[in-house]
Design a protein around this nucleic acid. Structure first.
Length: 255
DNA sequence: AGCACA
């Protein structure tokens, strides 16, 4: 059972209804139970048939759930619950700007973690493991490709390949957390002293390792994953160069 | 079933 929350999570919504129509309908339906801050509904595969109705108070959400539960909307009975987590709009309403920013950072980090998890899961199903060379390979900034391929492509030159096609490598951004961070795009002035100063203040710090002969990259190891996660969250996109230059890319080490 | 917020 989810906890009381100002946001009502709606599911079992008719998926063929266009998003603007759906949100407008939910708005009229739910506005009798309190002030609505916003309604979030999306149409992608994972999110369709669901919506988040953000009220200005948990009491309003509670009334809405009680009264509207099972209501037939577009011929389908709605299933209502409290949302699992607070909506951004709720935190923005109830907390300071700083807390709001922190909330978003945490939420985005968590979102990234889930994406990484999904990416790793779908990798597993393509049983051939990705070739893991010594290089970290600067991955593209795109999402990992969905595997929509149903038939194996024939090998060129009429050669019958017995091997499955190589699984696409997960982009850096989606690598699952581990205790070692991989830093890229370090400016030349980022000496090991500076890096120790920055990364050394997070829980469980062990060491920074520069790579001889490789400019711009380094590894930072922590005692455990939690330390690495918190360091990453707090240093992601940090600028180490003069006036905002040298935006450091922080990802988990490819394992 | 599915928990998002470009």
């Amino acid at each position: 059972m989810s906890e009381r929350n100002s946001t009502v999570y709606c599911r079992n919504l008719e998926e063929s209804v266009k998003i603007p129509v759906l949100t407008a309908t939910l708005e009229t339906l739910f506005s009798q139970y309190g002030t609505i801050l916003e309604i979030i509904a999306k149409k992608n595969l994972r999110a369709r048939g669901q919506a988040f109705v953000v009220f200005d108070s948990p009491e309003a959400a509670e009334r809405a759930i009680k009264e509207v539960q099972g209501f037939n909307l577009f011929e389908k009975p709605m299933v209502l619950q409290y949302a699992k987590t607070k909506s951004d709009a709720t935190v923005q309403l109830e907390s300071s700007d700083a807390e709001f920013e922190a909330h978003k950072r945490r939420r985005l980090a968590e979102k990234e973690r889930k994406q990484a998890h999904r990416a790793a899961e779908s990798q597993k199903h393509l049983k051939r493991p990705a070739a893991s060379g010594p290089s970290q390979g600067l991955g593209p900034d795109s999402r990992p490709a969905k595997k929509t391929q149903t038939s194996a492509p024939s090998a060129p030159g009429g050669l019958k390949s017995t091997a499955a096609p190589a699984a696409p490598q997960i982009p850096d951004e989606y690598l699952p957390p581990n205790k070692i961070l991989f830093l890229q795009n370090l400016p030349d002035n980022a000496t090991s002293d500076i890096l120790n100063g920055i990364f050394g203040s997070f829980e469980g710090f062990k060491e920074v390792r520069l790579v001889p002969g490789r400019k711009g990259i380094a590894f930072v190891e922590y005692e455990n994953e939690a330390g690495a996660i918190s360091a990453k969250e707090n240093t992601q996109g940090m600028s180490l160069g003069p006036d905002g230059s040298g935006i450091v890319k922080v990802t988990y080490q490819r394992q």
